[in-house]
Design a protein around this nucleic acid. Sequence first.
DNA 1: GAGTTTGAAACT
DNA 2: CAGTTTCAAACTC
Length: 963
Amino acid sequence: MDSPEPSSKITATINNTLSSDPVPAQDSPVFNYISNLSPIQPVKGAPIVQDFSGLNSPPLLLTSPRINTHSRSSLLKRSQFPKLSTEVFSGKNEDYNNAITDSDGTAVFFSPLRSGLSPFVQKVSDNNISVHEQSGTPIRCVEFLIDVSNSESGNPSNSNNTSPEVADSIPQSPNSAEDSKVSVVNIVSKDERKDEIPEDATRVVVEEAEEDNKGKFPSNQKYTGVYSTSDPDLPSHGFCTKIVPGLAAHSSLHYHYGDQQMAQLSTAGHTMLDEASNIPIKSLETAHDCRDDSDKIRMSIAPDEGIALLDSQTKAGQHQSGISRRCLQFEDAQQKMAPASSSSQNASGIVSCSIQPVSPAVIEVVEPVSSKRSSKLTQLVSSSVNSESLNVKVSKPSGIGLHLNSIVNGMEAGSGVTVSVKSTQRGNLSIRGKKLTSMMSCHASKNLKNCLISSNVVGSNLTIGDNDSKHESYGSDAENVAASLSLNNAKPLNDTVLLKPTEHTPSNKRKFNSEHIDSNMDYNQSSPQKKRQVKKTSDGNDGDGCKRCNCKKTKCLKLYCDCFAAGVYCVDSCTCQGCFNRPEYEDTVLDVRQQIQSRNPLAFAPKIVQHSTSSPANILGEGGASFTPSSARHKRGCNCKKSMCLKKYCECYQANVGCSSGCRCEGCKNVFGPKEECGIDLVNKHCITERLERSVEEEVEMVTATSGLLQSGPINQCNSTPLTPSFRRSNVDASKSWFTSGRYLSSPDSGQANTAAYGLSPGSPRSSNNHDIHQETTGDMLDLVTFDHELNYGNAKLANEISPGFHVTGNMDDILALPKSQDWASNSGGQLIPQTVHFQSTDPLSWHNSPMTQFDRSGMNTVELLDSDKKPYVMEDDTPEILKDSSILQIGVKVNSPNKKRVSPPYRHLNEIGSSSSGGGLKTGRKFILRAVPSFPPLSPCIQSKDVAVHSTNNSEKDSSSK
DNA sequence: GAGTTTGAAACT
DNA sequence: CAGTTTCAAACTC
């Protein structure tokens, strides 16, 4: 419908509807109409809502018809939002409310942006998981899904409480301005009117609207960023409406497409409620007109499961978990996304990627709700991961959880994308997604496997976002963080009370810490006793995969704190004392974070970067844990002197990645890949010493195998060379396993690089055939994926697997569309473009090629790869990320220098090899990246991932070129 | 669970 | 940028 109606009117109407019992809503003609249209029965929907609050699927349906009223929704959004949100997150409601209230009236605690984001995130988390997988465009979908889920879950339970509130809120949000996205939201709101569900939906919508209102993002852009890219293109209205009738539920899968996806998701949620969810996918598809290629990809992912299920599940468990740890990065990604989205479709695609990262954030948000969630999430994640979905996400997410900052952060994959992948798993997917997201959100870095990926994912997400909207994203870093924080705040996880040092401005680190912390110490302090209660499971991770910190003096506002360093809020399970790393102190956290970033833009960037070459093979480990970092490398490298890189003191080892030339370790015996001196030399020289490497690799393999990390792929590959992750991946066997498994185990290593390649072409991994396609078509996709992968190694894998297979074929076309994205990228910001370009050409190629080479192994390629990997990694990872702009070489040098090896040669070598694509592509890519990075720290993670991707691409390109 | 070791982060 | 200190995790007992 139209925006024509004043928001107030709409809100009023909504309120009325909402205020009235949900039932009435059903009674409403609209509802009837919808019910008629959709197979889903409204009543069922409610019951179905397993999630938290009863979802009012029916409402959703109803809403769908209303979809048109985008503007309305927007208006409603804010006012409703708060209330709704609160309701939605039953546990978190209070927090949420706060946040909301803030946003509405004024962001007391949270910055508007944040608040906006947070809500958004929440939404995502709820629904969403699936969305992430989809990545870019998926984002929208995610949100919608979330909304739906929320509505679903929330409606039943919440509806009761909230319905009235909602009504109130709705009216409040008079802001009309909205984009198509808004329309989507509106749809949700409509649903609300009809049913309780609307609440959730409304919340989401409201949140979005709020965000929009806040104006950071142009309404459209924002949405695009958040939800899906193409708001403009796809006016949510048409989209949504279609979906509604169609019974999005089923189709959730399909909906990855930007806005459409959103709608679908929402619908899915409804369907969930309805249970029946017999709705044919077609309906969804029809609904989607959407367009973005990226969307298609998503769709591939989505298709599998009924999103609805996911939503419900995820909502319940995931919300909590997710909330707790919101990822700053994620937020960033979101922000970035939004801007990006605004850009062209391509951008949207990219955006989607960025969005995905967001999802992770969402997850975090969810987590806060209760420690349970974390445990649940972790379990879920583990399970899901094991199965694959997780892996996929990881891969994606990265970054998919933001790439690198996990960035793969990422994320999208990490977040959204991954989720969607899980969804593919069906049924449980939603949950998984949440978990994944949560995982990602949680200390990605630490949990190399999961977390790292996630972190990477985040980064990736960010990167994506960066790509899309470099500028925006940059700016957003802090914002993102803030947003993430806000989200968290919104859902005050644990701390309910908080002193909120209102102004602890972190400006003065210690001061801040001491002051605020001191005061707060008591407050927050989780009893020290807890410390090891929760104790990180094996790795210090809680079940979630998120680590729990035990900070005593730093108030969790320094990088000493794993949580803080990971861009996540501390959770109840943390045994930290005087913790300020809580949503309540969002401002402080952000400030501190900014400060730290000002000093070191890469401070929050994912520490581990995947090698471009990294092959998915490494990823293997269905167990989830396994992803081999073979391709991955620690950006900075370690400085171990006594541990020989054989203990967790070593960050490289801890991350399950091999040491690189960038490492300054002494007596490195890193099982995952010693910093071989040879490695570097080899690269440069093509070292003869391959023997050493091999031996090392063998050792590594042995170790890995014994250790259980095993990455089937890796081992084989390992033989080729310890360092080269690519090998692992490359190993056909590995690749096979990888593909066959469907999940990628995606070794983290390969995952990253691979992910990129793989990620994009989820299918690629499996079907070599697709490679070409991927290359060509999916340039953008790839980029996105790659990012995601980086972010979410594991996730990415999953996503890839899921989506890839699915996506690839169907989506390929879409992917093809990606080229646009390239343009877009170019337009938007150098980063994206270069990356995309590289990816496109390289990734696919690299995959195939690299693997081949791996097999060949002996081949120069292998050596090169190794070299490239190492150096590239280093280079990329390190400086590169952002800083290194143009001069990749520099990075390489830097890296090399530390390690001893001749960095420069390797670089060249790489470049040459890459041909160097690298020459042109890589360099360019990096240059772009660098630019972006410099501009904003947040991006760095993304950049890293990108860099990685680029490297891989370069290599691949080289290969291709050579071919 | 306490104490030690370790290496990163922070500071100078 | 290097050196030192601080910190929290990892590890050992």
